[in-house]
Amino acid sequence: MVDSKSQKLRQTALPYPYRDNGLSLQIEEYQLEDEQPVELDQEQDNLTVDLAINESDPWEHATLRGEVNLPEDVVQSVYPPDERSSPPGKLYVAVRCPETIYRDRVDVGTSETEGGLDPGVHEVEISLESNDLRGKVQLLPFLVRSFEGDSDGQFATTPNVRLASGEPWTVVVDEEEESGSRLIEGEEAEFSEHDHLPGEKRLYHLDFRKVDSPKLWINSDHSRIVDILHANGSVGAEARMRDVVLDQIQQGVWSQLVVRAISDVDDEGEPRHDWERAVLNIFARDLTDEEDVTQASIQLREELNDPEGVAVLMERLDGAIQDYIDPRDQLINLIEEGLQI
């Protein structure tokens, strides 16, 4: 039974029980390059890993190791009685960097019994590449269903639907505003005051005038929206609205970036610009049946140039971007905040 007020609100927003802080992620150590691992203070309360420790010798690759705890009472809350002895589930940690609109997920090393997930503590290892990141990165644990189930409608039965989450950890990648790298640059401006930007009604504009370095402009004519985008933290109404607005922007931005990258692929499957290569590394394999990014890129270019194939490609692209961004979770969080008002 779900007892807390927040859990009751979560069940009202969703048609099934969901444990918002049911999981516990604990990062125990980090390792930069091949150096000796550094153990973290297990008594710390701020759930932060600071990797910006030596600006004169920046790191390229970092590994974080820790554990995700799935308590027995969470299993009892989110699964129907006939599944609780061998719950069909998977654990993963979502990796999100708002500054570079980078998202990834790391599967947690889990123990399974006859297709089910054992409650308890499970080890996780998270790899980070500095070229993908800037500023701060959030690590969030999630529990999802692993296959379809049958119930009376009270519990979630759809594969991959989220059942529980936990408090996020923050990884500080760099402190300086100029450090790190972005897939694309971003800047705010009043669209009404600049001829090279579209009309003042537009929320954002992706600028390809410098094709080797596209730039995302946010329209500061809409001051209230820009204020929301500057909201800090991970909870509260403004933070939830910020995440939903960012998801909306990302959907359109990613669509343009992927199509541009595909259109620039040559006969050998190579794009013209570094940012295009990064985009294709993220999406090309998911949009095709190819495991090799180069072959996948060639196939995508052929589809884009085919009047009949482009419509099917755009449909797949929309789904792939939705899977990458996962806007459902942010919308649910916003709904929860609305229910508390």
Rank of each mutant, 00 (worst) to 15 (best):
A13E: 03
A13R: 02
L14R: 13
Y16D: 02
P17M: 03
Y18D: 09
Y18L: 12
Y18K: 05
R19S: 14
D20S: 13
G22D: 11
G22P: 11
S24E: 12
S24T: 14
L25M: 09
L25K: 01
Q26K: 13
I27Q: 03
I27C: 03
E28G: 05
E28V: 11
E28I: 04
E28R: 15
E28L: 12
E29L: 10
Y30L: 06
L32M: 08
L32V: 12
L32A: 06
D34G: 05
E35A: 13
E35H: 08
Q36M: 09
Q36V: 12
P37T: 03
L40C: 05
L40G: 01
L40Q: 05
L40M: 07
D41E: 10
E43M: 01
E43P: 00
N46H: 07
L47R: 15
T48G: 04
D50S: 12
D50C: 05
L51Q: 01
L51T: 06
A52I: 09
I53H: 04
I53A: 08
N54E: 14
E55D: 13
S56I: 03
S56F: 04
S56L: 12
D57G: 05
P58Y: 11
P58M: 07
W59M: 00
W59K: 04
E60M: 08
E60T: 12
H61F: 11
H61E: 13
T63E: 11
T63N: 07
L64I: 05
L64Q: 04
L64Y: 06
R65L: 01
G66F: 00
E67Y: 10
E67C: 09
V68L: 00
V68H: 05
L70P: 07
L70F: 07
P71D: 04
E72G: 06
D73G: 02
D73K: 11
V74I: 09
V74T: 11
Q76R: 14
Q76V: 03
Q76H: 14
S77R: 09
V78F: 10
V78E: 05
Y79C: 02
Y79V: 05
P80N: 03
P81S: 12
D82T: 08
D82V: 13
R84A: 08
R84T: 04
S85T: 15
S86E: 14
S86W: 08
P87F: 05
G89Q: 00
G89T: 08
K90D: 15
K90L: 13
K90E: 15
Y92V: 00
Y92I: 00
A94Y: 05
V95W: 00
V95Y: 01
R96G: 00
C97W: 03
P98E: 12
E99C: 10
I101P: 04
I101H: 01
Y102I: 07
R103M: 09
D104T: 03
D104L: 01
R105E: 09
V106P: 06
D107I: 09
S111I: 15
E112K: 10
E112A: 11
T113H: 14
E114C: 06
G115F: 06
L117F: 06
D118F: 07
P119E: 09
P119Y: 10
P119H: 12
G120M: 08
G120E: 10
G120H: 06
